[in-house]
Amino acid sequence: MNKPTARQIKKEQTKTLLLNTAFDLFSSQGFLGTRMSDIAKAAGVSHGTVFLHFNTQEEFIAEVVNHFCNKIALRTHKLSESSSSLKDLLSAHLDAISEYEAFYTRLVIENRMLSQEVRDTFIIAQSAISLHFSKVLEKIDTSSFSPALLFNMWIGLIHHYLLNGDIFAPEESVIAAYKATLTETFSSLLMQQNNKM
């Protein structure tokens, strides 16, 4: 295999810089509140340099969402490998989100206003996480519930708290403030319902 040239290395470093800069700005200003020129300026590159790496703004946003949602999914995967219970898996999922909480929250808030490509990327990342969820549910008797419905309920609960972070945890991490409550309550409700069946 050929060794990358200095130019190729520099190009890859610039792309990584752009992705990380966009992540920071999207986390703090939102996707819709951040212009490509803002990212270029914060990264210390020309506006045209951004378009050397990404053809359109939508493609750039999709790449950033894909990159960081994959990190969340991979982190959930790593943390959940040793999960023996639903509560452990839920906790691992929240730990993975918490590492990117501001970005993830912005994505949840602005998702419906972003391009279909970005929304599809977000859904694919959620699907990867739902696979782990289903595997853990196989160990528990949840035959009276659809795993997809249970996963959607879990995601809906998390998203509700993140969307209303100003109410639930003003000026602090929603995940840090509610991780134990969310995991314990969700898993307890599921277990109680199963016991009634």
Rank of each mutant, 00 (worst) to 15 (best):
F168L: 04
I167T: 14
M197A: 12
A176V: 07
L190A: 02
N194D: 12
K179I: 00
E172F: 08
S173C: 10
A169G: 11
N194H: 14
E171K: 11
M191D: 11
T181R: 14
P170Y: 09
K179F: 02
A180D: 15
L182W: 02
N195G: 03
N194R: 14
K179H: 07
S187F: 02
P170H: 03
T185L: 14
A169C: 12
A177M: 03
K196L: 14
F168T: 08
F168P: 08
L189Q: 05
A169L: 09
I167W: 03
T181I: 13
S187V: 00
V174N: 01
E184M: 13
Y178W: 06
A177I: 01
N195Q: 12
P170C: 08
A169Q: 04
T183D: 03
L190T: 01
V174I: 05
T181F: 12
N194G: 12
A180F: 07
F186W: 00
M197F: 13
N195I: 03
S188V: 05
A180P: 05
I167A: 13
A176F: 05
P170D: 04
A176D: 06
M197S: 14
Y178D: 03
L190Q: 01
I175Y: 00
E184P: 08
T181Y: 11
Q193C: 05
L182S: 10
S187E: 03
E184K: 15
P170G: 11
L189D: 06
N195W: 05
A180Y: 11
F186H: 01
E171L: 09
S187T: 06
Y178T: 04
A169W: 02
Q192V: 02
E184F: 09
S187A: 09
I167F: 10
Y178R: 03
L189W: 01
L182I: 15
Y178S: 07
K179E: 06
E184V: 12
L182V: 13
I167M: 13
T183A: 06
A176E: 10
I167C: 08
M197G: 15
T183M: 00
V174L: 00
M197L: 13
A180T: 15
A169R: 06
N194V: 10
S173E: 11
A180H: 15
I175E: 01
L190C: 01
L182D: 03
